[in-house]
C-alpha cells in the first residue's frame, strides 16, 4: 500500500532520470555526462574506501570533513550570537530603535561581497570562511529573533510579572520559548544560506572542501566529477533541511498543535 503510494508520488523522478540518461547518451555533449557515469564517478571518488570506514575514501574525508565542520561551526556561532543579541534587542524597544537602521543595512549587504574583505583581513583559510558565513547568515536569525521576542503575547509577560518570575526565568521560560517558532524559521533560512556562502568561500578562497572540488573539477574538464559534486551538494542541502525540519517538528510540537486548536 505504502509502496504503491510512493510510486504514485515519485514516478516522475525515475522517468526524468531515464530521459536524462537517454538524452545525454544521444547528444554526447561533454558538459552533460550521463547520470550513470556521474554515479560511477561519485562511487569511485567517495565510496570505494575500506569497509572499516563505511567505504568512505580519503577524498571523501577531505571533501566533506572540512566543509561540514565549517558549515556547522559557522551556523552554531551565528545562532548563538544572533539569538542572544536578538532577544536582548527584541526585549528593549529603545535598543531596537537605536539599532534598527544598522540592522537593516547589515542584512542588505550581499554577503559574498565581503569574501574578499575577510580574506584580506583574516588571511586564507578557515577563519575567513567562518567570518563570511557568520556575517552572512546572522541577519535572518537576528531579525527573526527580534521579531519573535518583541511580539511575545502581553498576557504571557504579565503572567510572568504577576507570579514574580526572575529575569532568567522570564527569558528562558517565557520569552525564548514564545519566540522559538520565529527563531527556528530564521535558523532554517540561515542553514541554507550557510551552505551557499560556504561554497562561495571555498571556491573563492579555499584549498579543500566540496566547493573547491567542484570548481577544480570544472577547470580540469572532469565533468562527471563536477556533476557528482552538484548532486552531493543537493543531497547535502536536502538532508540538512530535512533533519532540521525533523528537529523543528519535535521542538515546536506545542506550536503546531496550539495553532491547530485555536
Amino acid at each position: 500500500m505504502n509502496a504503491i503510494r510512493a510510486v504514485g508520488r515519485l514516478w516522475l523522478v525515475p522517468v526524468t532520470l531515464v530521459a536524462w540518461e537517454i538524452a545525454t547518451r544521444v547528444a554526447e555533449q561533454p558538459f552533460f555526462p550521463p547520470p550513470s557515469a556521474t554515479l560511477v564517478r561519485m562511487g569511485e571518488m567517495w565510496l570505494s574506501g575500506p569497509p572499516s570506514r563505511l567505504l568512505l575514501t580519503e577524498q571523501a574525508m577531505s571533501d566533506f570533513g572540512p566543509s561540514l565542520a565549517r558549515l556547522f561551526a559557522g551556523w552554531a556561532l551565528a545562532a548563538v550570537i544572533g539569538v542572544a543579541a536578538g532577544v536582548a534587542i527584541g526585549c528593549s524597544t529603545r535598543l531596537s530603535d537605536y539599532l534598527d537602521p544598522l540592522i537593516h543595512l547589515g542584512r542588505a549587504v550581499p554577503p559574498p561581497l565581503l569574501v574578499p574583505f575577510f580574506l584580506a583581513l583574516l588571511k586564507l583559510g578557515t577563519p575567513a570562511q567562518l567570518a563570511t558565513i557568520v556575517f552572512g547568515i546572522i541577519w535572518p536569525i537576528l531579525v527573526n529573533t527580534i521579531d519573535g521576542a518583541r511580539t511575545v503575547d502581553r498576557q504571557h509577560l504579565e503572567t510572568a510579572r504577576i507570579f514574580g518570575f526572575s529575569t532568567v526565568q522570564r527569558l528562558t521560560r517565557v520569552i525564548v520559548p514564545a519566540a522559538m517558532p520565529k527563531i527556528f524559521a530564521g535558523l532554517r533560512l540561515a542553514l541554507s544560506l550557510a551552505l551557499i556562502l560556504l561554497i562561495v568561500a571555498e571556491i573563492f578562497a579555499g584549498s579543500g572542501g566540496l566547493g573547491y572540488r567542484l570548481l577544480s573539477a570544472q577547470r580540469t574538464y572532469l565533468y562527471a566529477d563536477m556533476w557528482g559534486c552538484l548532486v552531493v551538494l543537493g543531497l547535502l542541502g536536502y538532508l540538512l533541511n530535512s533533519a532540521f525540519l525533523l528537529l523543528e517538528r519535535r521542538v515546536l510540537a506545542w506550536h503546531r498543535n496550539a495553532r491547530q486548536t485555536t
Binding site: 523522478v13 566547493g211 551538494l233
Partner: peptide
C-alpha cells in the same frame, strides 16, 4: 519530488 530535490541545491553550486 523534483522541486524538493532541486530547491535545496545551494544555488551558487550551479555557477561552474
Amino acid at each position: 519530488p523534483l522541486i524538493e530535490f532541486l530547491r535545496p541545491i545551494p544555488s551558487v553550486a550551479v555557477v561552474p
